[in-house]
């Protein structure tokens, strides 16, 4: 561990106690994420990708091995690790701007200003006073992203954030996310089971295999942004990722 990676994971192992005995969900995971990187994690269900994200988020602490963020051990959730869940998880009694501010006061002019900026970033102008029930799934997820970004996280962890959305909304949100990443340089770590999404967004695609959850391969994606999904070079990388699963016969 000589490199000054933002996130350093070394021989991370996680086991669940079950009636049938121990089940190893994560087996000796080694991974480093550099500041400003966009990493996607892909794998079939049960490969432990969500568990891995939960551990980095600090929501799951029963593991062995080391998980360091900025050289500090992750022991609990914090605003340094922003988390976006599959569901938007907005507070239903708060309006859009109140949700983004959450525990901070909108009376504070600084908070107000940053909330307004973020509403612009996630393209939700005009919906400041709307309640979550009045928003579409894609809009609600954008509010959740703004809420995490307001806290200026070192890393944004996204756990299949667009899985519940339709194809068009998903593509739109991918663009929004890439814009945010390019503008703010926030390190991103996104878990998905969508091949296209993984390749389209990432600098590196981390491929995991199940039982026990292991990193089977890491594929760098050296394509400039914005990327064309139909281009030969994109399709070539997509094929490489896909072949990795065909070998395992797990997809």
């Amino acid at each position: 561990m000589t490199s000054a990676g933002l996130l350093q994971i070394a021989s991370l192992t996680k086991t669940f106690q079950q009636p049938q005995g121990e089940m190893r969900v994560l087996d000796h995971i080694d991974l480093q994420v550099e500041p400003g990187e966009f990493v996607t994690i892909i794998g079939p269900s049960g490969c432990g990708k969500s568990t891995l994200l939960k551990i980095i988020a600090g929501l799951d602490t029963g593991y062995s091995g080391t998980v360091l963020l900025g050289r500090k051990k992750i022991e609990r959730p914090s605003i340094k690790q922003g988390v976006i869940f599959q569901e938007h998880r907005l507070f239903p009694w708060m309006t859009v701007e109140q949700n983004i501010a959450a525990d901070l006061s909108l009376k504070d002019p600084d908070v107000r200003k940053r909330v307004a900026q973020l509403i612009e970033t996630v393209r939700l102008q005009g919906f400041e006073k709307a309640y979550p029930r009045e928003l579409s799934g894609g809009m609600a997820q954008r509010v959740a992203i703004a809420r995490a970004l307001l806290r200026k996280p070192d890393i944004l962890l996204l756990d299949e954030p667009f899985a519940a959305l339709d194809a068009f909304t998903r593509q739109h949100l991918q663009e929004v996310l890439l814009d945010i990443w390019r503008e703010n340089g926030t390190t991103m770590m996104l878990v998905t089971h969508e091949l296209d999404e993984a390749v389209y967004l990432a600098n590196r695609v981390v491929i995991m295999s199940p039982r026990p959850g292991r990193i089977s391969r890491i594929i760098p994606v050296d394509l400039p942004y914005p990327r064309a999904r139909a281009s030969a070079s994109f399709q070539a990388i997509r094929q490489t990722v896909m072949r990795e699963f065909e070998h395992k016969g797990e997809w």
Binding site: R76, V83, E87, R147
Partner: peptide, 20 residues
């Protein structure tokens, strides 16, 4: 799930009660 969000956002104990 909302309690989990409040933990991730580092709500203080008071905010946890009054805001959630």
């Amino acid at each position: 799930k909302l309690i989990e969000v409040a933990r991730v956002l580092e709500f203080s104990r008071t905010k946890m009660i009054t805001k959630l």
